[in-house]
Design a protein around this nucleic acid. Structure first.
Length: 467
RNA sequence: GUCUCCUUAGUCUAGGGGCCUAGGACAUCGCCCUCUCACGGCGACAACACGGGUUCAAAUCCCGUAGGAGACGCCA
């Protein structure tokens, strides 16, 4: 039990789950599974004003979507406030923390002074509990009495040895004046109580780590190992955020990215295993380790994600793909529709980069085009229309079958006879069937939607452009 | 401003002193395939931030410089 690896993912529900956080979750999860350890989930909702149930539910939803399963029940941090306070009080009792009565004004001027003089903000006698010089109407905060001399060293699994002079560390607040514990305190207490052995989180927490180590030391607790993974940047090199477009995990879900594509992409962002690009879950678990986690931050590249997504779309079987795509259709599908889409799926899926695109292109098996793309007019000259009329007649007379291969041969022959290129006829048919000039094979489409529907669409097209 | 971290093509990366005329992938471009668009196949373009050392030998080790990022809350 004692040497078992315990990691946690500790998002705060103060906003929608960031895609960078998802990668943190993934790395934690992989590390746990690689080591046969536990992956715990903790919701850090101590900021009651900004935390919402909705965001919490979203965290569960995204993790489930990505099949990042957690062990045990999620820990709700706010429910552990009493424990956090208890630790703070104990620290005060043991002289490791103190009540600070500084008013916000005093604090501001003091801070300004420290900033100007380039000194860290440290406790002084004036802030001590029991100081009668101070107005006891002021509600105090509890601050940690941090070390003044020496260094604090983190032996980070990613960043290596990182050292900071203790003179840089300030006396952080443990308990706010309203009596609630701060993040710094809660994290340390919870990680300790949950027996967390490895804290894997975003690089933006690296400097917090020094301060948290001070808390561990004051409490006399074992310090876990830390791994700070580099952040994900936007295309401009700054921390990926909403202004870069899709920054939240839910965005990618709605944009039609498959969970396996997201996982694979996120895994390769900052981690590698030789030349491997397409990595299965099994191999990810087998191969994942911190030696191969890069130190430098990486930029989010939508094009590569799309490429991966296209790969995984092709890899999925047709039934599961349709099932997955169902919510992306803006209209109801009949069983007949589904059957036809499934028939055409092999051709549809190799063209789609996202599920949104897949659902959109599947519409050719659901209904006739409502509008024709402007480019269609190029294949709607009187000559084209005349050819289409002939084809309609031949279909009606059963001179042309709707068997894909037979029809293909017949039309080729027909083109030859009329002395036009096949592309001229095919494109005209395509325009009529799809309303646009890019689609799977027209012969395949006809074989699926069958004679009646084909003739209907061809007639509409001819009518439309005859006017 | 202070502290901390980072730096191989447009992007993700391989690389651990000689296997490097720097490998793979995405993107881009070209050719082939072809009823369109894709898929697929073949090919091209394109990088060790800069400057000094150390060494017979440096992308790799050391020192500077420059650039970028993160943290400096009674947010998490």
């Amino acid at each position: 039990m004692n040497n078992k690896v315990n990691v946690r993912f500790a998002p705060s529900p103060t906003g929608v789950l960031h895609i960078g956080s998802v990668r943190t979750a993934l790395f934690n999860w992989l590390y746990a599974r690689h080591n046969n350890g536990n992956f715990f989930l903790r919701i850090e909702d101590t900021d009651k004003l900004r935390s919402t149930d909705e965001n919490t539910k979203l965290i569960f939803k995204i993790l489930e979507w990505l099949q990042i399963n957690w062990d045990g029940e999620p820990v709700i941090q706010s429910s552990r406030m009493d424990r956090h306070k208890e630790v703070a009080l104990d620290l005060v009792a043991r002289g490791k923390a103190y009540y600070c009565y500084c008013t916000p004004e005093e604090l501001a001027s003091k801070k300004e002074y420290c900033l100007r003089e380039n000194k860290p903000y440290k406790y002084d006698g004036k802030c001590r509990n029991g100081n009668t010089n101070h107005d006891l109407n002021i509600k105090p905060v509890i601050r940690l009495k941090s070390e003044l001399d020496g260094f604090t060293v983190v032996n980070d699994m990613v960043q290596g040895e990182v050292k900071v002079n203790n003179s840089q560390l300030d006396d952080l607040v443990l308990i706010r004046s309203d009596g609630t514990p701060t993040y710094m305190l809660s994290v340390v207490v919870d990680d300790h109580d949950m027996n967390i052995t490895h804290v894997i989180r975003g690089d933006d927490h690296l400097t917090n780590t020094f301060r948290q180590i001070q808390i561990y030391k004051a409490c006399g607790w074992d310090i876990p190992k830390f791994g700070h993974i580099p952040l994900i940047y936007g295309p401009d090199g700054a921390k990926l955020s909403k202004r870069h477009g899709a920054a939240s995990a839910i965005d990618y879900m709605q944009l039609g990215y498959l969970p396996e594509a997201i996982s694979n992409y996120l895994l390769r962002l900052g981690w590698s295993h030789g030349d491997e690009e397409i990595i299965t879950r099994e191999n990810a678990i087998k191969w994942f380790d911190f030696n191969s986690v890069g130190k430098s931050p990486s930029r989010f590249d939508m094009a590569k994600l799309q490429n991966l997504n296209a790969h995984y779309i092709k890899e999925r079987n047709n039934e599961s793909l349709l099932e997955y795509a169902l919510p992306f259709f803006k209209c109801e599908l009949t069983e007949e529709n589904k059957k036809n889409i499934l028939k055409g799926m092999n051709s549809l899926k190799e063209r789609a980069k996202t599920i949104v695109e897949l659902a959109d292109s599947s519409l050719i098996y659901v209904k006739a085009p409502e509008i024709y793309d402007d480019k269609c007019s190029k294949y709607a000259t009187s000559n084209h229309l005349e050819l289409l009329r002939e084809i309609i007649t031949k279909l009606n007379n059963a001179e042309f079958s709707t068997n894909e291969e037979e029809l293909c041969n017949s039309i080729k022959e027909f083109a030859n006879l009329r002395n036009v290129k096949l592309v001229e006829i095919a494109q005209a048919i395509r325009g009529a069937l799809c309303g646009k000039l890019a689609s799977p094979s027209v012969f395949e489409i006809i074989s699926i939607i069958d004679k009646e529907e084909t003739i209907k669409r061809l007639n509409s097209f001819v009518d439309h452009y005859s006017k």
